[in-house]
Design a protein around this nucleic acid. Structure first.
Lengths: 264, 264
DNA sequence: CATTACTGTATCACTGAGTGAGACGCTCAC
DNA sequence: GTGAGCGTCTCACTCAGTGATACAGTAATG
């Protein structure tokens, strides 16, 4: 039987401390000082210093020329080997390129991790840059991909998400649980999800779920500027391509897929 | 002063053990059993089991549906935050797309890490798949990018590489130290490196260095099938684009760059 | 130039987190 | 049934990791 989690136990274990040091690095922090890491991870400076040097020896962290600390090369390499994303990306990428070519819009591939959407691949269109980032996260209720995945997920997942208050990204984000459940129902019927400036002002998108068995494992979307993109125009394209990817995905024999929380 | 490395000290420290567990996962291993990890890392099964569970709690590893272990989502996310690659990729990617568009060939971006070439970004062309992989490694003497970088690196780096025997990937790979030094000299004069089936049979490429100051920090290449690609046709294109990227790179004010071994 | 306020890290006596052989329960294949 | 594999819990032991303190180095200040 699994050990009970006992709340947050990352206090004393070496592993937890390492995790907390990694956590110090957000998208905004390219490099940090040892002291800053010590502060953020609430570790004594001497302790932080030692662990950091250990991690540097392992190439999991790197020292910059000005004696600061950044995430190391090995993390990049390991990140490329993470299986779900790797398999999914390998399969989806060429389809996504077709879609980009056809639509001249930005194409997104994302999965649900915990109660957040995690972007796995993005093919950008020329034009204004979107705020999304590979490896970045968003609240699922605010994004097309997130809604598309949730509409085809086990109700347990949806309920778990709704057990906390929904986050809003713009004034059009759906935060009312009842309204959100209705939205998911509509999406399930139509097969695609729309995002009308719910994730960001001026941003519109169409998204469809990528299925494995009865449940969605990922979401695919075409995203663009509200006044330049008519999402209904690409509804069928996204749906079709998502289905193609799902079919390719189904051909993979080994269930080496990371367990998504989908199964019961 | 830095602590002396004392050979391989990854035996007893927690950090070293974690590193060794990560090391178990190669490109071929999507998932491993606990026992297999224990064997590969020479850790007692019980110990491996416990550490693995700790790492799973930290999302650095994941358990698959069939109770095996894979690399976890967090590694993917962290990998996306590694600064050198991130900055370099962000800047290089749009240029690389132009190059792909113009050449209809595969475009590679790689850096030198230790004594190996590490692929940081690849934009694939339609057609036969190349064996290169983002996050993958190659011996620098066998690749266009590797030779391009080395030709514009501090002689210390080259000498260190030559202190070990050079690896061959095909019969045309350059392994003789003297011949290799001559090759680097030619590359330095011409500004580009060619790879005539030195990395793989049927593979040809042109590569140019991406500079920061007086030394190369990365390499850019156009790679394709030997009988379809005339590398000299794209010589000027690669050189020009590599120079553009170098210029963009120079505009970055903060030296938050990971220390490459370039400086002295 | 001294002062002050930071940094990062080496020291070292202490101690509890991590250890790992062994046992246990489980699932397979034969 | 037997046996060989698996993952993990137990628990007495012990050494790896700890962290307050000290110290050297850098940067900005008066």
């Amino acid at each position: 039987m699994r050990k009970d989690e006992a709340g947050v136990d990352s206090n004393r274990s070496m592993t937890g401390r390492i995790g907390r040091i990694f956590d110090c690095f957000g998208p905004g922090d390219r490099s940090l000082s040892v002291r800053e890491i010590a502060r953020r991870s609430s570790l004594p400076p001497a302790t932080a210093s030692r662990i950091i040097n250990d991690l540097i020896d392992e190439k999991l962290l790197t020292r910059t020329s000005d004696n600061r600390v950044t995430l190391g090369v090995r993390l990049f390499e390991l990140g490329q080997l993470v299986p779900l994303h790797r398999t999914l990306r390998e399969i989806a990428l060429s389809y996504m390129e077709d879609l980009r070519e056809a639509s001249h819009q930005t194409v997104h591939l994302a999965i649900l991790d915990g109660s957040e959407v995690l972007y796995v691949a993005i093919l950008g269109a020329r034009g204004p840059k979107l705020p999304s980032r590979v490896g970045g996260r968003m609240p699922p209720n605010c994004t097309g991909v997130g809604k598309a995945i949730l509409a085809f997920s086990h109700s347990k997942i949806v309920d778990e998400l709704l057990s906390q208050a929904l986050v809003a990204k713009t004034s059009r984000s759906i935060v009312d649980p009842a309204a959100f459940k209705l939205e998911l129902l509509k999406i399930k019927q139509r097969g695609v999800a729309f995002d009308h400036e719910e994730s960001g002002v001026g941003v519109t998108c169409v998204a469809a779920p990528i299925m494995r068995g009865d449940y969605a494992v990922a979401g695919l979307s075409i995203t663009g500027n509200t006044n330049k993109l008519n999402p209904e125009l690409f509804e069928s394209a996204v749906r079709t391509v998502a289905r193609s990817i799902s079919r390719s995905l189904a051909e993979i024999p080994t269930p080496t897929f990371a367990r998504l929380d989908q199964q019961i």
